[in-house]
Design a protein around this nucleic acid. Structure first.
Lengths: 146, 146
DNA sequence: ATAAAATAGGTTGATGTCAAAGGTTTCGGA
DNA sequence: TCCGAAACCTTTGACATCAACCTATTTTAT
């Protein structure tokens, strides 16, 4: 009688097969690797690409805007910007009106890199989309969770 | 004539609205935060929960098995096991037959923690599932991408 | 039998992720 | 006016993620 209550294997199988968090993490990791590989010639990761892309607006956004758009912690964004700033792809400067805020501005170099990255994104993304019956439906579901 | 080719804003909007990678990362981050918060009283993250759960099998798996199941890099799994081993939730020992392989065994403490974690998972997951029209369809899509 | 290839895993270095705690600036109500 | 709450951001510490490079063991082809 040495056994204390075992955790049932059936529950493990239930979690393994139905856990939305696990399914999301797996898919997110796998897709991230595909984009990371595609962008590697440019020295960009998928996350860096998303950040740079989000900065290409008529008006340079502030950090909170970008963090919300990417569903990213503000402190994570602060960290992620460091390599981009170091490479001269992004400029960070205090907002003129609200000195708490910092404007994130894509540099000319950053813009040129986006120009190179876009066709890579288009091709990789087309491959991916073709694997899914209804990509827009999937995106809608993902939006509901974010 | 100082302007070099701008990267068009329309392309940015296209990427922002359709990029499956971005949608996945956003949803994965948001859902991960929800589970992290729910598991916090147990000192577990969503990823640690997934690893522990994947070890609850009749036969203790080896690292490669688990890495493939979680769509996780082998070296990432090595790193993730360290805190779990330190807490005495997992035991790592060389396989008897193949000395390259290492068996990952859930300890009694690990099993007890799973016992506590499961109802938290069930409740959090039920909340999540109720936000989606057809959770199984979403899981199927995510499986195709992983 | 043995050398080459394949398999299993670890180490290092760079980056990504977030909570907790803290600073500065702005805003809104008394 | 002014003071407390809210907003914006940073730093720190812990963990997560992967590529590149490495060792050890097993398998395979000759």
């Amino acid at each position: 009688m040495s056994k204390v209550s075992d955790f049932p294997y059936e529950s493990t199988l239930e979690v393994r097969d139905t856990c939305m968090c696990l399914h999301l993490q797996r898919a997110a990791r796998a897709v991230a690797r595909r984009f990371d590989e595609a962008f590697r010639p440019l020295g960009l990761t998928n996350g860096q690409f998303s950040i740079l892309m989000s900065l290409n607006r008529p008006e340079a956004p502030v950090m909170g805007d970008v963090a919300r758009l990417l569903a990213l912690d503000r402190t994570t964004l602060t960290a992620n910007l460091k390599p981009l700033e170091r490479r001269g792809l992004v400029e960070i400067r205090p907002d003129a009106d609200d000195r708490r805020s910092r404007r994130l501005k894509l540099t000319k170099d950053g813009e040129q890199l986006l120009l190179q990255a876009h066709p890579i994104w288009r091709d990789t993304h087309a491959d991916l989309d073709s694997q899914i019956d209804d990509p827009q439906r999937l995106r809608d579901d993902l939006l509901k969770l974010a």
